[in-house]
Write a protein that binds this DNA or RNA. Structure first.
Lengths: 168, 168
DNA sequence: CGAGTAGAGTTCCCTTAGGGAACTCGATGG
DNA sequence: CCATCGAGTTCCCTAAGGGAACTCTACTCG
């Protein structure tokens, strides 16, 4: 398949996507974050090919998202636990889950999130760090940041590009 | 490759993932949401194989995430615009972007988000709908919801499964 | 009126990742 | 010393992705 490596593209979505966006990685991360951390358990839970699971886990460890750790000495056994970097993928999973719940669950969401600090069964909202309002495409705009450079996939230039051609 | 269809699995992440999680779909959605809506422009911006782009766009239209619409009559030309369902993928992109910014941008984020309502250049935070606190794996827990059923990938049963050993 | 051009896809061929299922290997535990 | 368990490997087959050239339909310009 020769997946194009997207890591060189100056776009954070592309970089995150490069690691995260195949059919399995998100599911593996969900499992691991939820406590299914052993090779066989993940394989069984997801019904993923063991070969692919091996490759995915290796990549995730290499990227520092998971850490392979010994959880018992005799016999020696390893499992996969999320690093800080891995834990911070949780919001991505929440966003994905939210969207899936909203558009695909007829019988209600299969899983509910409970926020331990306030005790409520809740849903995740993506909000503005400053004013706590919900962020949407319609109430936001994108502007070049410090690390912005022109290049394929650097979408900020998109609208310019579009108008340049006499097009909305 | 015979991608396993995940849509039948009772997990919203899996359902969202099934559509969203390949190398390109997230990038295509970003482009479209940001105003790059024409076939050739997307192809050029992402340097994606035109063949794959055709397939992706068809899938996204089929799923109701994008809509193919005529933007000029003479000569007849179509482009792809996000539907409501598509627009609601924005939080997913924000979460992905955030994570990418945090872990992969050395020179600062390539793109900044400005919240038009409050005017600030901001970042997205995934918060509890009730108390506005940030949600993390550590301050949340998952519980079965109304649509929950046992099955592969239904991660709520994960911890149980792990202790129970032996499988539905 | 015929040539040229832009937009939007198709088609073809080649490579390689994913699916599945069986096989391996080390360390037990009985 | 044989059966188990956890954790991967190996093999073969198929289908999806990459790349680049080709096509089809309106135009539009000299």
């Amino acid at each position: 398949m020769t997946r194009t490596r997207l890591t060189d593209v100056a776009c954070s979505i592309a970089r995150a996507t490069d690691l995260f966006a195949d059919a399995w990685t998100a599911l593996i991360m969900r499992d691991v974050l939820v406590g299914i951390t052993r090779f066989d358990d993940i394989a069984e839970d997801l019904e993923i090919s063991r070969k692919v699971l091996t490759v995915r886990l290796a990549r995730l460890v290499e990227e520092g998202v998971l850490s392979r750790e010994r959880y018992q000495q005799r016999p020696p056994r390893e499992h996969y636990v999320p690093t800080e970097k891995g834990k911070e993928l949780f919001p991505v999973l929440l966003a994905l889950m939210n969207w899936g719940d909203r558009w695909y669950s007829n019988e209600g969401p299969p899983v509910r999130i409970q926020h331990l600090d306030c005790g409520s069964t809740t849903t995740a909202v993506t909000t503005c760090a400053h004013c706590q309002q919900m962020l949407t495409i319609d109430n936001t705009t994108q502007m070049p940041g410090p690390g912005g450079k022109l290049g394929p996939g650097t979408s900020v230039i998109g609208p310019l590009l579009a108008s340049r051609r006499g097009h909305p």
